[in-house]
Design a binder for these strands. Structure first.
Lengths: 200, 200, 200, 200
DNA sequence: GATGAATGAGACTTCATTCAT
DNA sequence: AATGAATGAAGTCTCATTCAT
């Protein structure tokens, strides 16, 4: 309570976050020093420590903010029945959620080894695992689970890694999502068939 | 290519590589210090410098050795015609190649941000891009390319990340490969259909 | 002497002093940061600076307040003749004065190295030296002076360090004082004997 | 095993210890920075870290070395019967042991607050408590214990604090020891008397 | 009577690397 | 084939203090 200054007076806190995000994405978390962030902003290192308790704290704040859409998605998903249509909707929304959250997940992905020892790594990974679990809900076979994972992976890594491909951003996202849905469909088809077998 | 100078004497070079690999995998490249490697081995840091010119050099040597199977796969692929069957074979062999090379690719993946500025990052990424290009050969549409990428991604990340899933290692690899092939098949089907359309 | 400026308003100044005293005793002067004091009090560091000009000032105010009894004792002692009975009374009163002043003298003792460079260290040490001088007044031999010092040391360190011993506080103080008086008596006896020798 | 370089090649380790001891005594442990030690020695800070793992380690090494005489004294004392003569001998030897160990005990005394949180503080204090316990062995009354403590305190603080008094060092030590023995004798007399009372 | 924001200095520590032996 | 000693650069963090509001 009152430990983190709520301050809306000078906006420095926000500027720190934005600068840090940029640098974490472009140079990596570990390789970005607080000196760099401070210099880029034209403040002293000590100013950073006025606004954030540690370096990790900057990343945590970023993740809490940008990761919220995925958090909300998980919350929503948990209240729905695990029907095929809901799963498709889940994947659709996941693709959307990633649109904004992409930078933070890219940081997570590209700095896994470094973040593994930080609390935040776990937090982010749990969010992803939760989405995965919702998609896999009810999947019986190993292969079924792998298909669901692959559908999510297509969307996830597509969102992060496809900068290299030619084409417009939104268009590419749509393509990636369609492929993800295809894979998900194949998973659903198989499960349904298996279920019918078991019954009939 | 003279990777092992005169070696064969005391095996220290090999021991360094093995220890480094373990530590790079478990603690990350950046977070692993030469002191740690040396201590774990019971030698001095200076000894490491007798065998390797720099820290990066240790990783490079590791990558040259473990990455060879994928290199050879690319070489082989380039001499084959881009038929569906060849593509399927390519994916199969890729899955196999990853079996041994997994650690090095895991290091690459989990330390991307760090390695981006090192030569070796590029080298490893190129190998992967080459496999991807072979799989995508002749793909006309954006969606087609995304499908091929996803097929490869399924196999690739499956190989690295599925330690968490239950089941025996080899069994999981097989499942992942089957799913990858499914996705690849869907890509091929579409391309073929599109080609027929264009013709007929 | 204007030690409390206009005060009497919200009592914050006093609360700062009390909190600081506690922390200086338990964590040491150097190791206690203004941040800690402020946090413990639920105010900002800047608030401390409204009431005190520097960190040292807080300690000085504390010392002026708590050290007064010893100051008064010294003033009293200087107006008395250096008779044995006065010396005994001096030691008795010193023991009493320390009852309240103990914390500040403990701080002095446990942070000597740190305070040596601050003015306040000297101030406190002078007070003690003054008591010592009064007790030694007229002591001819080195041994006599050592005896007087030891008598005072017994009382002084007894007051500070005997928390560890079993027994009730006031009871222990009495025991320590008795031992101190014994030592003082031995000093006086010797001096008297020596004086008689010289005369007779 | 091999963690501390045994090195006798350049003597830097010893020079570090000597310089650190001087600075710790004159400026205090906390106030002495590694930069100062390094500069005074004409080496870099990193060189200090080659020889000692932390700042505290330098102090620990110093204490292990200089504190040995007191350690040995405690060991000896524990094997003797607690007779009056042994106690007197103990105090005599303690006075001697302090002759060399004085600097380290002075550091302990003047930096108590700082060292309290370090392991080493406890270690040193335990040594002193052990001597105190040996002197008090068999003391029945609170006053008896206080007398023994005072005897030891006279010798201890005499050794550390009497630099201010006039006279030659060794001469002052002798005087302090004599006074200490006097106080110890008074303690012994009382205990003996009390014992006789109980019996007769 | 007190806060929010910021600073400048400096602390301890770790790292990759070098080189004479 | 390897060691002991040392370096220079850099990193994260904490502190007492200031000042406009």
């Amino acid at each position: 309570m009152g430990s983190t200054p709520k301050a809306r007076r000078s906006g420095t806190r926000e500027r720190i976050q934005r600068t840090a995000l940029d640098l974490f994405v472009s140079r990596g978390y570990e390789k970005t020093s607080l000196r760099e962030i401070a210099e880029e902003l034209g403040v002293t290192k000590a100013a950073l420590y006025y606004h954030f308790k540690t370096k990790e704290d900057i990343l945590t704040a970023l993740s809490d903010e940008l990761g919220r859409p995925v958090d909300e998605l998980v919350a929503w998903g948990r209240e729905q029945p695990p029907t095929p249509e809901i799963k498709r909707e889940l994947l659709r929304r996941y693709s959307e959620a990633l649109r904004d959250a992409a930078p933070i997940y890219r940081i997570l992905q590209e700095n896994q080894a470094t973040l593994r020892e930080l609390n935040i790594g776990a937090a982010l990974r749990e969010r992803l695992a939760a989405v995965g679990a919702l998609l896999q809900a009810g999947a019986g076979s190993l292969e079924g689970r792998v298909r669901c994972s692959s559908a999510m992976a297509a969307v996830h890594f597509g969102a992060l890694d496809l900068d290299g491909l030619p084409g417009e951003k939104e268009e590419k996202r749509a393509a990636v999502l369609r492929v993800g849905l295809e894979i998900l469909d194949s998973a659903i088809r198989e499960e349904t068939a298996a279920a019918l077998d078991a019954v009939g």
